[in-house]
């Protein structure tokens, strides 16, 4: 049992380390948006309104997986 847990930990750590190294090989990607080209202090907010629409409560029995909705 102790060996199995150790093996799982070993596989996870190896996966994280190697996965991190693999992800660093890709450095080319398209930009999202144009944040770097925003004119400093140019943003002027004229409407700033948050409206509450409603709420919903979901309850789940603590000892089962069954989900009930009210």
């Amino acid at each position: 049992m102790g060996f199995l847990i150790s093996l799982v930990i070993g596989l996870i750590v190896a996966g994280v380390v190697v996965g991190s190294m693999v992800s660093k090989l890709k450095t080319v990607h398209m930009q999202k948006g144009a944040a770097a080209y925003t004119v400093h202090n140019s943003m002027n907010l004229t409407v700033n309104r948050d409206v509450f629409l409603g709420k919903k409560v979901e309850k789940t029995p603590r000892n089962t997986q069954t989900q009930q909705k009210r």
Partner: peptide, 26 residues
């Protein structure tokens, strides 16, 4: 949670925003 149930209450909002923002040399 209480003795029998776990509860999740989700509140929904609509956020309206309007205004101006400038971009230079994109």
């Amino acid at each position: 949670s209480d003795a029998n149930y776990n509860y999740i209450e989700t509140s929904y909002f609509q956020a309206v925003r309007a205004g101006k923002i400038s971009f230079a040399q994109v």
